[in-house]
Each structure stands twice: as C-alpha cells, then as structure tokens.
Nucleic acid binder design. Sequence first.
DNA 1: GCTTGACCTCAAGTTGACTTGAATTCGTAG
DNA 2: CTACGAATTCAAGTCAACTTGAGGTCAAGC
Lengths: 143, 143
Amino acid sequence: MKILDIGEVSQKAKIPASTLRYYEEIGLISSIGRHGLRRQFAPDVLLQLALISMGKSAGFSLKEISGMFGRDGKPDLPREELQDRADDLDRQIRELSALRDTLRHVADCPAPSHLECPTFRRLVGIMGKRGAKKADLRVLNVT
Amino acid sequence: MKILDIGEVSQKAKIPASTLRYYEEIGLISSIGRHGLRRQFAPDVLLQLALISMGKSAGFSLKEISGMFGRDGKPDLPREELQDRADDLDRQIRELSALRDTLRHVADCPAPSHLECPTFRRLVGIMGKRGAKKADLRVLNVT
DNA sequence: GCTTGACCTCAAGTTGACTTGAATTCGTAG
DNA sequence: CTACGAATTCAAGTCAACTTGAGGTCAAGC
C-alpha cells in the first residue's frame, strides 16, 4: 500500500492541490497523515476522486456526492434513495442521448432554421416526457 | 402562431420569470415584443428552453449553449466543433452509465467498504479510459 | 548549515447562474 | 375611474465551488 503525497495525487488525478485541500476541508476526502506539513493520502483516494468526477459530471453537488460515497466509500443514504438517484441518471442519460443526436443532426442538416426542421423538433421532443416527480426537479433545476 | 406572454412561458416551461428575463439579458433567448410592459414570446421559445435545460443537465455553460443553438436556433459553431461536443456527450453518457451501475451496485452489495469490493472497483474503472484530449478537459474540469 | 521548492494556513476574491427587493407601470375587471 | 395583480427595471445579494495571495514551514540536496 504505497502512500501518496498531495503532489502525486494532484498529478495523477489531474486536480489542483488547492482543490484537494478544499475537498478535505468539506469532508469529501480525507488524508491519512502528514509528512512534515505535506498531506499524505491512501491510494484509494484516486478511486474516490474518479467517483467524484463522475458525480460532478452528472450534476450532483459535492454534498450529494459525499452522501453517496462518503468519507470512506460508504454511502450515508438508504438503498431506496440510491436507487432513486440511479433512476435520475437513467432519465438524464436518455436526455443526453437526445441532445447528442440533436447536435449531430444540427451539424449535418442544411436547414436554415432548425426550429422549423421536423427532425430537429422530433429529437428535442424526446425531452417532452413530462411527469415532474421529485426526481425531475433537480434535473430541471426547479427547486 | 399564438404568442405567449412571459407568465405563460414561465408556467409551461416551469422556469421563473426572473430567469427568463435573465436569459434574455444574456442573449440566450429573445422576446418578440411587448404588450404594455409584458414581454411576449414566440411559441418556439419553449423548444429552446427544452434545449437549454438539456444542455445544462449535460454540464454546458449558458455561454456554450448559446453557441450551440444561439438566439434563433442557429448554431454559431462550425460543424466540427458540434461533432466534438457530441463526442463529449458520448463519453459522458458512458460515464453516467458507469455511475448509475455503481450506484445500483452500492445499493445492493452488502460489502462493508466498497473500496474493497472488486465489482465496485471494476465499475469505477470504466472511468479510467485515459487520453486527455481537449474534450476531456472540460468534462474533468481541468481548465 | 543553507538554500530551494513544494507544501502549508487563512482570509479574501472570483465566476456563473440566478434571486430578491424596492419602487414603478400597465391593462383589465368591477 | 379606481383598484388590483402581474410585470417591469436596476442594483444588490446569494450560493457553490473553487482560486489566489501573502506570509510561513519543512526536509532533502549540496
């Protein structure tokens, strides 16, 4: 179990040291000791940081992320809540797929205004799956 | 083509009027006139707002979104750039899928610390597709 | 033993995306 | 004609997630 100091973590995870300090400050990750002043981390922190990165790219706040795989990789949340999050992600994945297809269509379609193009409208329409459950509120930023 | 005033747009899109004003201010959408003081919008604005919502949930900034489907639904960006964005989305969709699977696994797996669970590590490992192209930088927040 | 470079702390600053509040202006219903 | 409610402007405030800067500390190499 090789111990990493903050510089190595920063380099391997491509995250500035200041951010790692900040993450520790808010309890998202934790250092395992010091070498002089230097923070030392267990190698697992790299895995945690990967999770954090994914969580962020899914639009979760750092607070939510720390609830999902807290300080030591154990979730604070009940199973049901975790399944709800997963369901959110399914919805979001469908949306992103529609967005991706829309983007590719826009890149190819010669129509002058896409708002008039039926293909475009159909693609965007995929978003139109209504039914605002609690889950959607986060996604739609309706708080 | 029925014209909508800001209240209707706000209600149908579930977006506060203040936000709509803000979006107009930054040139993301545009109103088509006034009725007294009240802003009026073309119905297409609802489609645009759906796109904006998707773009946001994909992690794009409002500035990027307005580059993709600017003020009247026409992209400012060259095709190549749009395809790059779509590629980003593909990557992100893969990540979100991994995250979703990880979440479901965490909800089910009885292991005390997930960092020790091989299934967990494999799932998170999907993220490990390295090769930091310009595109990844945004996703990874390495600017 | 001294220098150097990477790290430290702590407070303050930044950015993006909105929201809030006070004072004002319409248009419609009564 | 007046009251009402829904919108308006504009400046200022908020929040999350970091970043920056000044001034200090340490351990490893020469």
